[in-house]
Computed example of a mutant assay.
Amino acid sequence: MGDEGKIFSLAQVSEHNTSKDCWLVINGKVYDVTKFLEDHPGGDDVLLSATGKDATDDFEDVGHSSSARAMLDDFLVGEIDTSTFPVKQKYSPPKQPHYNQDKTSEFIIKLLQFLVPLAILGLAFGIHLYSKST
């Protein structure tokens, strides 16, 4: 659109919050989606409700297609000022040790090796008490 190199603050973006002038922030980039409001499959309310905030989570949660992601390029007007509005980093879970099922199996075997003889001893004691009482 010609303004792709511009940097906008969140305050500037949030001023564009009507059906005649609607801007969104997705992944640190600012998009003027005004011309797309009528064509948006989810309706214009969805887009209008996302103005004035980072709409990245809303956009990602829906699971947009690759063609929908490609359409964003047509609406790009600039980037958000990251000094006043830090862009969310993609979540990557912490590295955790691989789950080792063999260790779990070993624990269960050791537990059974303790409990089964205890149960047999309890059963034998119960039978012994029962036979004495009769």
Rank of each mutant, 00 (worst) to 15 (best):
F107M: 11
H64Y: 05
H128M: 08
L115E: 00
L47M: 14
V25N: 03
V87F: 02
T82D: 13
V25D: 01
G63C: 09
K132T: 11
L112G: 12
L10A: 12
E106C: 09
Y99F: 15
F125L: 15
S131K: 12
Q12N: 04
A55C: 04
H64S: 08
L112F: 15
S133N: 09
K53E: 12
S19L: 03
M1H: 11
T104V: 12
N17L: 04
L76M: 06
S49P: 00
D44C: 08
N100C: 10
L24N: 07
V62E: 06
M71Q: 14
H64T: 10
Y31D: 06
D45T: 10
H98F: 04
H16E: 07
R69K: 14
E4M: 07
A11K: 07
P93A: 15
K95N: 11
D81R: 04
S92C: 07
F75V: 09
S131I: 11
K103R: 12
T104I: 06
F114H: 00
S131R: 13
S67L: 08
L112R: 07
T18A: 05
L48F: 04
F85D: 07
P93C: 07
I120G: 00
K132C: 05
S105D: 14
G28N: 02
G126D: 06
S19G: 13
D58N: 09
K29I: 03
G63L: 13
F8V: 09
K29S: 13
K95F: 10
F75D: 08
S49H: 03
F114V: 15
T134I: 08
A119G: 12
K110P: 01
D44W: 01
T82F: 01
G52D: 01
V30S: 01
G63I: 13
G5P: 00
G126F: 10
P117Q: 03
L118R: 00
D57L: 08
S131T: 14
